[in-house]
Simulated scan of single mutants.
Amino acid sequence: MRRVQVLIVDDSAVVRQTLTEALNADPGIEVLCAVADPILAMERMKTRWPEVIVLDVEMPRMDGLTFLRKIMSERPTPVVICSTLTEAGAATTLEALAAGAVSIVTKPKLGLRRFIEDASADLASAVKAASLANVNRLRPAARPDPALGVAPKLTADAVLAPHGPRALQQTTERIVAIGTSTGGTQALEQVLTRLPRVSPGIAVVQHMPEKFTAAFASRLNSLCEIEVREAKHGDRLLPGQALIAPGGKHMMLKRSGAYYYMEVVDGPLVNRHRPSVDVLFRSVAKCAGANALGVIMTGMGDDGARGLREMREAGASTIAQDEASCVVFGMPKEAIRMGGAQRVQPLHELPRALLEFSAGKRFEG
């Protein structure tokens, strides 16, 4: 069995030891070494280059962000950021994602060993997903039940009942729902920064830990003409605005008369995610029907694939990002396989597709 070769870079000896034990316990992963800072990492990498790097951000001698930029400019390699779950560190961690990191693994300040032991399956999954990433697309431009070993994979039924008849159509306001995961922070930036102020309201689920989504939305808001912010319970979804689902919460579209608004709720993990793309897409199928466009983008797994099919069955227009432009062609691939996607388009064509839909164009198929 082929094992993914990993290098751990973290200034905490406890983190290095615990991560090494947790990852080596997976038969599909081999930790080559664990070092205290990027200077030592570069020395080790002269003789053996890892397939995935697990990297802390705040370290002595050279910070993780500088090291990441150096790696991505010289020899692009999948990097998983291992960051403390704090608001203060969120902005720096998001800079790392923008610089080419694949994903975030969060670690608490206290109870670290127990946390990593409990979350070992999630850590291993993050490393394996990173090993499959198309890192050339990344150049700068909740825990499982210990009793089960792996969290039960719930569907959107756990949060929202399947839709019935097609949504009523007494409104002409069109909305867009986007779901994405691995590689999605960069992909969303490329799409949203190309939209003018006159754009449809957009609801976004990006798989991301809590406390990071607010900083992510704030960063996008500083780059975009449209307003981008983390959604709050009861927010109206308005034209010229994108609402990002908060990490650790599910987000659903609701309707009151001709108006759409967001419901932000607790609930179980769906497809092992909270927020879940399937939950958002199902709610859009129920409340917006043909007034909606669903877009599923780069990401590992199948979250959103069933929901996109439900949107299409409810009369919505649907798009899946194509393989060549994805960092990980998992979620779009499953949506295509299940028949949820009317179109398959590269990333650079998605902004135009959103505007065509907003202008009243219907997708064929």
Rank of each mutant, 00 (worst) to 15 (best):
I175M: 07
L192C: 06
G201D: 01
F216P: 02
L112A: 05
K232V: 06
E227M: 10
K109Y: 06
A99R: 00
L195T: 12
V135I: 13
A217E: 02
L138C: 14
S131W: 03
K232P: 00
E230I: 07
R113C: 02
L132G: 01
V228P: 01
A167N: 10
S218F: 00
S199D: 11
S125W: 01
T155R: 02
R174L: 14
T172F: 09
A156Y: 11
T193L: 04
T93H: 09
T185H: 11
A203S: 12
L123T: 04
F212E: 00
A96F: 02
A142L: 09
P144D: 03
E225I: 12
A126W: 02
V150I: 10
V198M: 08
P162Q: 06
I116L: 14
E227Y: 04
L110V: 12
T180S: 14
L97V: 05
S181M: 12
E95N: 12
A141K: 13
L123R: 07
A217Y: 02
L97Y: 07
K107G: 06
A119F: 03
Q206Y: 13
V150K: 06
A121K: 08
S218K: 09
L192G: 12
S199Y: 09
A101S: 10
V228I: 14
A231Q: 01
K232D: 11
Q206P: 13
A119M: 01
V204D: 01
E95C: 07
K109S: 07
P140A: 13
K128W: 00
R113P: 00
G179V: 05
Q186N: 09
P162H: 10
G164L: 15
V191I: 15
N136M: 07
L138I: 10
A167Q: 08
A142W: 01
P165M: 07
A156D: 08
